[in-house]
Amino acid sequence: MAIKELKRKPLTFAEKTYLPQIASGLIITLKNIFRPTITLQYPEERPEIPEGYRGVPTLVKDPNGREKCVSCQLCEFVCPPKAIRIIPGELDEEGDSAHVEKGPKEFEIDMLRCIYCGYCQEVCPEEAIWLQDEFSLSGYTREELIYQKDKLYELGGTLPDNHFKWDKKKSAEEAGNPH
């Protein structure tokens, strides 16, 4: 393929003085002064959080108030910056959720490490961890920003459930077998 050399257009005299260009630049910036500003007055005005926004990861309960996480530790495994730490535990044999058997004894997310990638939400088989719309965190110490289980549940609240897997399981267990 032949090489085609493109010649730069020589500058006109006016262009060489820069002055018309500077003037037109000045006009553009001047016009900008009178444009409306786009600043959001942040703490008073809040940005609109779009659907699917990935804010702080939180733990949620199902509508019956049962903690959904069963400490399967998949989120801990998948988390790229290793922000999640879980110490699994066995649930009380007596309580309402005894049939779930397993739940997190301790669950902490180091928000200083979290990169809000949402992998934890994606991997969770129980839909127990959600990146919700909270995005501004602050604390005075590093420890404060390692969120513990109670804090994560407080942030997460309750989300609607489509499956009620464990409730169904419990009722099946109670109904027993048509044996």
Binding site: T29, N32, I33, R35, P36, T37, I38, T39, Q41
Partner: peptide
């Protein structure tokens, strides 16, 4: 101030 106006800020 002027710089922010030119840049669409406050």
């Amino acid at each position: 101030k002027v710089s922010s106006w030119i840049q669409g800020r406050v």
